[in-house]
């Protein structure tokens, strides 16, 4: 599904190197988790994959089902099936959440040569998905993420994911800011999307989320590289011992 090879990234305006050769391969239907110390480059990896400005890829590649992502515009990546649930969802004053969702969905459908969804069908779809995520009508009416609490913003990200039905989902610290119940709700939402084909890359600091969304593979990222890859046990090890031992191991 997603294949990242030797990805090197620096900041566009500064000589700061952030990713120093990331290799990652996620097969169809797999759930991978990335953990790692603050500032190790996890969010940067997700931004670079989704096409945010400000980063320069100096080496390497990233393909989604064989197609080079790094040559595409952000909207093309989305239409190709990539989705990033943001660590810090963006507020857009003046743009209603419904308008936003509908424009996004129909843009992607159009880009893929599919028919746009009618207003009625769209409304039905949103209502159904919003209900399972306990997102009320008021949140749908308000401008995108404006005045949403931290947890509401994260749930709104998952709502977008549920509606857009991407093939490759990247979740950047979706668990941060969620209360225990919301964590369960969001995890259920994610698990409902697991269909054996759709793949997930879950960035998190805590084992807690991985109790709900069970990963097949866990990676540890440090200083812009994947320094260790293992099974679900690796996350438990981090939870219990922190990163010190792992970092010492590679040095």
């Amino acid at each position: 599904m997603l294949e990242i090879n030797n990805l090197h990234v620096k900041l566009e305006d500064e000589d700061k190197v952030i990713l120093r050769g990331v290799d990652l391969k996620i097969g169809p239907g797999e759930v991978h988790a990335i953990m790692g110390p603050n500032g190790s480059g996890k969010s940067t990896l997700s931004y670079v994959l989704s096409g945010r400005d400000g980063y320069e890829v100096t080496d390497g590649s990233a393909t989604l089902e064989g197609e080079e992502l790094l040559d595409m515009e952000p909207e093309e990546r989305a239409a190709a099936g990539l989705f990033l649930a943001f660590q810090y969802p963006v507020e857009i004053p003046g743009v209603g959440n419904m308008t936003f969702l509908r424009t996004a969905l129909n843009s992607q459908r159009k880009a893929r040569g599919e028919e746009e969804l009618s207003a009625g069908d769209f409304l039905k779809l949103v209502r159904e998905k919003a209900k399972t995520l306990k997102i009320d009508a008021d949140m749908l009416k308000r401008p995108v993420n404006v005045g949403f609490s931290g947890g509401e913003k994260k749930r709104n990200e998952i709502l977008q994911m549920a509606i857009l039905e991407p093939r490759m989902c990247i979740l950047d610290e979706t668990d941060s800011g969620l209360d225990v119940d919301a964590m369960k709700l969001v995890s259920d939402g994610v698990n409902a999307l697991r269909d054996g084909k759709r793949s997930f890359l879950v960035i998190t600091h805590y084992q807690r989320l991985l109790d709900h969304i069970k990963p097949d593979v866990v990676h540890i990222m440090a200083a812009g590289r994947i320094i260790k890859t293992g099974g679900p046990d690796l996350a438990l090890e981090v939870e219990n011992n922190g990163y010190a031992d792992l970092l010492a191991e590679v040095q």
Binding site: S50, G51, R52, D53, E73, P74, E75, R77, A78, A79, L84, F86, P89, V90, I92, F100, T103, A104, L105, S107, Q108, A111, Q160, L164
Partner: peptide, 10 residues
């Protein structure tokens, strides 16, 4: 960028 990352053309 947020809008584009959701598939909305520039």
């Amino acid at each position: 960028y947020y809008l584009r990352s959701r598939g909305v053309p520039l």
